[in-house]
Every structure is written in C-alpha cells, then in structure tokens.
Simulated scan of single mutants.
Amino acid sequence: MIDRAYCRTMSRYNAWQNRLLWEVLEPMDGDALRRDAGLPQGSVLTTLTHLLWLDQMWLSRLFRVKAPHSDFERAAAETPSPATWWAARFRADGALRMWADTLSSVDLTGDIAFYSLSSESDVIVPRATCVMHMFNQQTDQRARVRQVLSQSGQTLPPTALFLMPRD
C-alpha cells in the first residue's frame, strides 16, 4: 500500500510546506494570527498548533518519541506565539523526517493499538492507514489555514508536490 519512499516524500513535503507557510506568517501581526478566523480550532495559530499537536501524537505512536500532553489546551500553552509555534514545528518536522528516513519495510506493516482521544476509545488499526491519515490530515489542516490567509489578502506559495525542491 505505502512504502518508505512515500513516507520520505511526504515528510519532506510536510516540512517544505510548513517552512513556506512560516515565511507567510512570520511578518504577520501575532494578534491577527490569534484572532478567531472561523476555523474548527478558532484562530490560525490555534489551528496550526492543533496540527502540530496531532503530528506529535502520531510521532509518539509511530516513532516512540515523547507524547505531547493529552490535554490539547495544556499542550497549546507551550506555543503561545507564532515564533514558539515555529520552533516546535521545526523540531517536529525534523523528527518526522528522521522517522521516515529510518523506516524499514516491516515498520509499515501490521496493526497499531492506541487510545484515540477523538473517539475516546481504544483502537487497533493498520499502521499504514495511520500513516496515510497523518499525512492527509496535515494537508487538510494547512489547506484550511491557507484559505483564511488567502481571504485576508496574503500571497501564498505553491503547494504542488511536483514543485517541491529535491534534496
């Protein structure tokens, strides 16, 4: 279904897109990024922090790194500004790339068991499905943020996977 090459490509794409997004966010007013933008998590910053938290949660399940606080509000308090979000995002993207670069074929097979906070239940699902979900979730959340930024007049960089620079 998926392989190491897919994970490496998608982890690189994720890091690239987050860096390009940061280039748009960095000069913006922090208060504007914290203002409710009608997104499911409210503001642009809260939505991006939520995505960071989700990535950290998936990394803890897939790569056995330390999990973030299970309480999102408590975890979000660790990234109160765009700059602190970016520092944490940069570290998470590095961990995600390290995970993808060190994968073996067997790491994408079998099931994974964990407690799902969203369904409030224990789940057992194929590991490959979780990986695909993680990457799809990243793209979906960034697309929502990009829509808000575009509507506020920001010029946004390309998202086409085939435009991603090669390493």
Rank of each mutant, 00 (worst) to 15 (best):
M10C: 05
F63R: 06
L39H: 04
M98H: 15
A128M: 06
M164H: 03
A113G: 14
T47C: 02
E26D: 15
E23I: 02
S43K: 05
R61D: 02
W99Y: 04
L52M: 15
D140L: 06
L20Q: 11
M1S: 11
N18P: 02
Q56T: 08
D3Q: 11
S121A: 14
Q154G: 08
A67R: 04
R64G: 12
G94W: 00
G153F: 14
S104T: 13
S121C: 13
W58E: 00
W85S: 08
D101Y: 09
R61W: 04
F114L: 03
A37N: 10
D55G: 09
R12K: 07
F162H: 14
A100F: 07
R8E: 06
T139F: 03
L163E: 14
D3W: 13
S60D: 02
G42A: 01
F63C: 02
R19D: 12
L117T: 12
R97D: 09
C130Y: 12
A160D: 12
A100S: 12
A5I: 13
E73V: 15
Q137F: 04
L96H: 00
G110M: 04
N14R: 04
I2W: 07
Y13G: 00
A75Q: 06
A88W: 01
L33F: 05
W86C: 05
K66N: 08
P40E: 06
L103G: 00
A88L: 02
D29A: 11
N14C: 04
S121F: 13
P157S: 04
L108Y: 13
L62C: 00
L45S: 02
D31Q: 15
R89V: 04
F90K: 13
R34L: 13
N14K: 03
T79S: 04
R127K: 08
M57V: 15
A77G: 08
M134V: 08
L25R: 06
S11F: 00
D3I: 10
R144D: 13
A77F: 02
V148R: 01
L161H: 09
A75W: 05
M134H: 10
H50N: 10
S43Q: 07
S105F: 13
T159L: 05
T155C: 06
D101G: 11
L96P: 00
K66F: 03
V123R: 13
T49W: 03
M28Y: 14
P80W: 00
L161Y: 10
S104V: 09
M1W: 07
Q137P: 04
A100I: 11
R4D: 09
V44I: 06
P27T: 06
L161A: 06
T46V: 10
V131M: 05
A5G: 14
R89K: 06
R74N: 10
V24F: 01
P82D: 05
I112C: 01
F114I: 03
L21R: 02
K66L: 07
S81T: 14
Y13V: 01
V125N: 03
C130E: 15
A67S: 04
M134C: 09
E78I: 05
S150R: 11
F72E: 08
A88D: 04
W22S: 01
T49R: 10
R61I: 02
A160M: 08
S121T: 15
N14A: 02
W53T: 12
F162V: 13
Q154Y: 09
N18W: 00
A100N: 10
S116T: 05
F90N: 12
T47H: 01
P40F: 09
G94K: 03
P40R: 08
R127V: 03
L108E: 12
P158W: 05
